[in-house]
């Protein structure tokens, strides 16, 4: 599509004037805080205590402290949270959400439309409900004394489990899988729907099994969607905060993801300097994800042009 430059509703000046308020807002509320956070990360600024009023410029000290090898792997420190978050992303986003979403989407190609709608509704309901509602629902579900799950287990004569204390990490992995599988499912669903049905009909005539159709027709044709999905859910899962409602980051920091760690340092311990340093590192990691995503999108656009 080519753009007609001689026809425009507004002059350049009027266009700029209309953009100015938005640009000012973005400048004040996005760009300024962005550079402010980077600046604060080089100070020892706090909210309470002496360094609140007269913070010192400490250079890279906050960063050195975060990457101090002596404490890096200790629970409740930056390194531990970083590794935990990586495991969380691998298990709950890549394995959990993407795989479950793919499986659901594939199975839904073959089931009757009525059933398909019911499954879709259930999965999407998990996705559209507000975070806090979901968090409390899961908390109530898993509670040791009065939780639904343990009532069912006890009713069946099985031993009750203290899931939130004993297996907190697996709880948040399963929670996040359950929560986010809907997005992958919908994305893969529409991807499968875009494949011409004749491909599958031809395969049926040749007597291909469902797995063969998936491996040789479905998957190769939606490869681009898979990569897009993986990058998007990796970014979202990396920054997710909802597990806080389930476990408070505990017990003993065992579920303290990077976002929760950042919140604790900055807004529970009021250590703004160190918290800003953590924020800057999270920003850099997100930037890498975004660049991968953008470069992939560009490659795809180029491939379409050719």
């Amino acid at each position: 599509m080519t753009k007609k430059r001689n026809f425009s509703l507004l002059s350049h000046r009027a266009g700029a004037a209309f953009l100015a308020p938005a640009a000012a807002l973005v400048g004040v509320f996005v760009l300024l805080p962005f550079f402010w956070v980077i600046f604060v990360s080089f100070t020892n600024r706090t909210l309470l205590g002496k360094t609140a009023l007269s913070p010192d410029f400490v250079g890279l000290q906050n960063y050195f402290q975060l990457f101090d090898p002596a404490t890096f792997f200790t629970r409740g420190q930056f390194g531990f949270s970083l590794i935990l978050t990586t495991q969380f992303v691998l298990l709950s986003a890549l394995v959990g959400q993407a795989l479950l979403g793919l499986l659901l989407a594939w199975l839904m190609q073959t089931i009757p439309p009525a059933l398909k709608r019911i499954v879709e509704t259930a999965v999407i309901a998990a996705w559209i409900l507000p975070e806090v509602v979901i968090g409390f629902a899961w908390f109530a579900f898993l509670d040791y004394d009065n939780g639904t799950l343990n009532m069912i287990l006890r009713g069946l004569g099985l031993p009750a489990g203290d899931f939130l204390l004993q297996q907190p990490f697996w709880v948040i992995v399963i929670f996040n899988t359950w929560r986010g599988a809907a997005f992958s499912m919908m994305l893969f669903n529409s991807a499968f729907a875009s494949i011409p049905p004749s491909y599958f009909q031809a395969a049926d005539v040749a007597g291909a099994s469902s797995w063969q159709k998936f491996r040789d027709i479905g998957l190769p044709l939606i490869r681009g969607h898979v990569v897009t999905d993986l990058i998007l859910i990796t970014m979202w899962t990396f920054n997710v905060f909802t597990p806080f409602i389930l476990t408070n980051g505990g017990p003993s920091y065992r579920t303290e993801l990077l976002s929760i760690y950042n919140y604790r340092i900055a807004f529970r311990e009021f250590d703004f300097g160190k918290g800003a340093a953590v924020g800057v590192i999270i920003m850099l990691i997100n930037l890498i994800f975004a660049l991968i995503y953008l470069s992939f999108g560009r490659k795809k656009a180029k491939a379409v042009e050719e």
Binding site: L48, G49, L53
Partner: peptide, 11 residues
């Protein structure tokens, strides 16, 4: 017990 840290923080 929080008074000293709030005071030093100018709060």
């Amino acid at each position: 017990f929080l008074i000293p840290s709030f005071v030093e923080g100018g709060l």
